[in-house]
Write a protein that binds this DNA or RNA. Sequence first.
DNA 1: TTGCTTGTTGATCATCTGATCATCGGAAAC
DNA 2: GTTTCCGATGATCAGATGATCAACAAGCAA
Lengths: 229, 229
Amino acid sequence: MDGTVRPPRRLDPEARREQIVAAAVCYFAEVGLGGTTRDLAQRAGVTQALLYRYFSSKAELVEAVFERVFLGRLAPHWIAELRDRTMPLPDRLCRFYSQYTAAIFTYEWMRIFMWAGLAGEALNRRYLSHVGDSLLAPMAEEIAAAGPYRAPDMEEMWALHGGIVYLGIRRFIYQLPTPDDTAPVIEQSVRRFLAGLAPPSPPVSGAGAASSRAARRAGPRSARATSHR
Amino acid sequence: MDGTVRPPRRLDPEARREQIVAAAVCYFAEVGLGGTTRDLAQRAGVTQALLYRYFSSKAELVEAVFERVFLGRLAPHWIAELRDRTMPLPDRLCRFYSQYTAAIFTYEWMRIFMWAGLAGEALNRRYLSHVGDSLLAPMAEEIAAAGPYRAPDMEEMWALHGGIVYLGIRRFIYQLPTPDDTAPVIEQSVRRFLAGLAPPSPPVSGAGAASSRAARRAGPRSARATSHR
DNA sequence: TTGCTTGTTGATCATCTGATCATCGGAAAC
DNA sequence: GTTTCCGATGATCAGATGATCAACAAGCAA
């Protein structure tokens, strides 16, 4: 009925701490950061009092959960690989999003990130600012530099990103059925996005640069942005 | 310091109930469904005991909040308008997403929907199934019927949808700066999506149907889908 | 004014929750 | 075997939380 086997008492402190953090990641991902220390302790197979031998407060335990889940998930070499122009641009973007989604499309990452976001944790804003500045902005530059595509603004990059991340939201937040293999869906999103940035099929001639679509778009990245509430 | 003016005691029951629900929508959107009845009562400018004259339990109050926030937000005539082929397809899709986002891009809708989703409410799954079946599927049919576009599968429709909804998530869940006017961003997303479905600029000739891109895509909508956890 | 109806309140209950502490007992050191 | 160390536990505390209830008082009718 329980699932978690009661381990031998008197464990090595490091192993015990590890056991608690692992259980906490799983538990808080499921019920949210408002989960109780008692339920968590039961899942971890320890007494509630023992939690306070390893963490001085619940907040500190949550902090350890954040570190475990979020720290080191983004590999720094992704940015370099994104800029490696010896590889075709579409392949670079596909490779990146393949790696990126492999890193964050987990029950624990997705849900704890969303719980934390709703709770107003600054962590989320820092993380997403980093995504925008260090990942999406370089991607936009590479797209503009690569070739028949027009330069996307940041909102367009966020639309690409959101379309992909939303798959994880459907799966792990709303727990809806999603394709087992996300790779083809994601690759298709990237390629469709690029195709949407390519100049349209010309009516007759096919020489000059993109010219006809000057009307739309209020200006590259001039739209004012404000915080809401 | 308070903001909410203490109303005259002995209010009309309907008005009082209305006052409580309105405060509850605002309060639960901010702190989540785990918020306390005492804090809510304080915000509503009533005593905690009074809540239980109008709602037999906290769960019933939450139910009233759900009804208030979600009921009747989706206008049924949107589907008909989506299928009205006297209007150009891109305009129809833009109009739809303009109406749709006007309805759901609010602090209360976005956040309560997300809190409920994380809490595992069946409401979210029902709602999103409806979105898929009654909105995205017809949209896909219209796209396929309309014109130079290839037929998108449902995952592609969810990618379009996610890219747009993610703007609301950034704004209301993560509270990040977003463009004040979402209309041009959304319209651009729709048009870029359609452009990405259009046949690529042909090398020389331009007559035949789409033929070259047969390789990709494992099959229209055959990819197996499973629930996760 | 008197009296009734009923919206409203402060007090209170049982339970839950984060946190503390004296005590217990397994394992290594001697 | 005995001692010592320290990981682990059960009991417990103070405050929070959902829910209840007797009592109060505003509005209305007679």
